[in-house]
């Protein structure tokens, strides 16, 4: 029965082939128009802030899309000059880079160890421990902010380098907070490496440490690098914890906390300088995301299929 219906359905299509193609083209046109409009929505803020950063007049009021009244190419860089000479911009960037580098490297090293153990050893309590780690992660990091703040306040009295208003304290909070989810992520990667590889090595008398360090680690290194880069970017862009935990120390401000400082009463007046900072601050992330587009899409869709 279905077959006959299908055949009936197919027939008119074949006769109106020209019409069909025309309507196909029409819909493709509509598609492209909608996509173009959405792309304008997506890109306009980016174009606008880039334009603002090159506009020599610093106020929001006098900005035009194409910077007007330019006499020399140097004038285009007025805001960048002001940013780099009158604001501690390089200091912020340095702080951010230090924090993010240490955080991402430490996180990857420590979580890779745990992931290896969860992936390769079988021990009692392994399952419960993994589920516990996942469950703890349900508690949003942000919600414990008050407690983390008070804890660093106390720790700082004894270990000044880990206290409030220090990069050390912030790094520890980042590293500690990122453990759970990354262990899960990496265990998945380790699971994808065939067990035969390390089992034969173990039979040959290698220790687990040797197997891990000389065999498995080099195999998963590309993925670890991607995870590390994403962790770097995430830390680089983190703002809430950094703002609360570094509140009292101008010298320890990270880039995002520093940029946040522009948004105040003088926002409209300092718009150009902020724009220059925003452009410089967004470039690393933007480049990394666009380069790693496929890996990120892969990771996300994998998540969606797995739940």
């Amino acid at each position: 029965m279905f077959n006959t219906m299908a055949m009936q359905k197919e027939k008119p299509k074949r006769t109106d082939d020209g019409n069909y193609r025309q309507s196909q083209q029409f819909w493709t046109g509509i598609r492209i128009i909608i996509l173009t409009l959405l792309s304008i929505f997506a890109l306009f803020p980016v174009v606008w802030v880039v334009s603002a950063s090159f506009n020599p007049s610093q106020s929001m009021q006098s900005q035009s899309l194409i910077p007007a009244g330019i006499d020399s190419p140097e004038e285009l860089l007025t805001n960048y000059n002001t940013l780099l000479t009158t604001k501690p911009f390089t200091r912020w960037v340095t702080n951010s880079v230090i924090t993010s580098t240490i955080t991402s490297v430490t996180t990857v090293m420590i979580t890779a160890l745990s992931a290896y153990s969860f992936s390769r050893f079988r021990f009692s309590g392994r399952r419960s421990l993994m589920l516990f780690i996942l469950l703890v992660q349900v508690f949003p990091n942000l919600l414990a902010m008050v407690a983390v703040y008070l804890m660093l306040l106390q720790l700082g009295e004894y270990l000044p380098f880990l206290g409030l208003n220090t990069l050390g304290g912030l790094i520890m909070v980042y590293v500690g907070g990122a453990m759970g989810i990354n262990i899960w992520l990496m265990k998945g990667f380790f699971d994808s490496v065939p067990r035969d590889i390390d089992e034969s090595a173990l039979v040959d008398g290698a220790t687990h440490w040797q197997t891990y360090w000389m065999l498995i680690f080099p195999l998963v290194r590309p993925i670890l690098i991607v995870v590390g880069i994403l962790s770097f970017v995430g830390t680089f862009n983190e703002f809430v914890l950094a703002r609360v935990l570094l509140l009292g120390n101008e010298d320890a401000k990270t880039l995002m906390v520093g940029l946040w400082g522009f948004i105040g009463d003088n926002f409209a007046k300092d718009w150009g300088i902020f724009a220059a900072g925003a452009v410089l601050g967004a470039i690393p992330t933007l480049v990394i995301y666009l380069l790693l587009q496929d890996q990120i899409v892969g990771g996300l869709t994998q998540g969606s299929v797995k739940g």
Partner: peptide, 9 residues
């Protein structure tokens, strides 16, 4: 692109 820009910015 919007996904690839730091949220705060």
């Amino acid at each position: 692109v919007p996904y690839a820009i730091p949220a705060l910015i």
